[in-house]
Simulated assay, not measured.
Amino acid sequence: MNTPGIEFGRKISAAYAALCKPLCQKLHLPQTAFDILMFLANNPGYQTASDVVEVRKLKANLVSVNIDRLVQEGCLVREADPGDRRRTLLRCTEKACPIIEQGRALQEEFGARLLEHTNEAQRKAFFETMDIINENLDAILEGEA
């Protein structure tokens, strides 16, 4: 069986960054700020700077600087968590909507380009396999394996 090597994840990340670069330049946004905005917009269950650091594995100081920038530019607002006033929630604003729309279009294009030269059966098998792998990961993390 041929499995992707260590380079596979790096290639995906580098290809995504290359595809994002023209949009980030057009929007005058650093890649990290764009990534934070897209992460928050696409994952409503994650709403804090800590979530961004933990899930995206970005350095806390880089996240902090870029969140400050997005707040100053009016793309994010900070709100107190009604359930825990010590926590600060981040919410995308209306001003961020055009950026998010363009980002989602770019992400759709990226996904389509990754699957170029595959047929429907290959895509179906790939996504079914990914679902099984995801279940296996959950079992490992839950200590059931």
Rank of each mutant, 00 (worst) to 15 (best):
S64A: 11
L89A: 02
S13I: 09
I36L: 04
L58R: 09
E73D: 08
E54G: 15
A15K: 11
G74P: 06
S13H: 12
S64K: 13
V55K: 15
R10K: 14
L76T: 04
N42C: 13
T48M: 05
I67D: 04
D35N: 15
H28P: 09
A80T: 11
T32L: 00
Q25Y: 07
G45Q: 09
V63P: 01
R56A: 11
H28G: 02
L76N: 03
V55N: 09
L23V: 02
T3M: 12
C75T: 01
Q31I: 13
D68Y: 02
L70Q: 05
L90H: 00
E94P: 07
K26A: 14
G9R: 10
R85V: 06
G103H: 10
L29F: 02
S50A: 11
Q47N: 07
Y16H: 13
I6T: 11
R86E: 03
M38R: 11
Q31L: 15
A105M: 09
R87I: 09
K59Q: 10
V71H: 03
Q102V: 01
P82E: 00
T48H: 05
H28Q: 14
P44R: 15
S50C: 03
A15W: 03
E94I: 05
L90D: 05
E94C: 03
V53W: 04
C92H: 03
C24S: 06
